[in-house]
Amino acid sequence: MSKDGVLIRARGLVKRFGDFVAVDGIDVEVRAGEAFGFLGPNGAGKSSTMRMIGCVSPPSGGELQILGMDPRRDGPAIRARLGVCPQLDNLDPELTVRENLTTYARYFGIPRRTARERATELLEFVQLAERANSKVEPLSGGMKRRLTIARALVNEPDIVLLDEPTTGLDPQARHLVWERLFRLKQQGVTLVLTTHYMDEAEQLCDRLVVMDGGRIVAEGSPRELIERYSTREVVELRFGAEGQETFAGKLAGIGERTEVLPDRILLYVADGDAAVAEVHARALAPASVLVRRSSLEDVFLHLTGRTLVD
């Protein structure tokens, strides 16, 4: 680790696949003990960035330093101190739940006995102790993800990399994963995660960058980003079948900004209720009205003109 507590430092980091530029010169700093997020839609370059940080994908350009080392030269030494939870589970289907942890520990050169002890602790931690001797296949998606997270912790890593940790999980399974990750964060483990769920980013990340088309378009804490790029409240209006466009003009002047989406109109305002009163005062009768707080989704919409989950 460098003196200023920066564990990951990227300068002008680039990843190219042939002519395609997946990551287009990004600057990132991740400090010890923080939960850092890459937020963006599919294809924004999040996973490519994660693979470069995980030292399994050589950068095509720029600088990258992890734990004070150079991934091109010190790959094995860096990976020894990382825990990786990939987007697609690659658990070993020929081994049991417990063996998946003990075998993985051996790749790090952890003695068998220690490996067994850690496996027991970690299975407890991810609430899979009862399934220890089961094969991997019959486990649910949420259980597999939790096992993958346990596997990422088997070497007591300095940094845990989580690529889309809850994509494809049902709501209950997601909350269980979030709760475990939050516990890790409290223990002071540095988390780096990618997500295209704004609620996930808001819940878990101390600081995040918003990525779009291989570039970073904004950076800050969830609250800072919302304050900087959005208003305090948002009014969502739906106007039946006639199409939203027809009404957009009639809403001019209410709030700071208006976004017209195919199925609804968003009014960015400081005071939601006052804005709704103004809508009614103009004799408009939307089919539904919802007042809510601004979220990272609004930040993303403002920065890119698109929604996160298409």
Binding site: R79, V84, P86, N90, F108, G109, R151
Partner: peptide
Amino acid sequence: YMKLYDGILATPVQ
């Protein structure tokens, strides 16, 4: 198919 080596390469193994 099992993607075993993707998992293994995330460790110090080369």
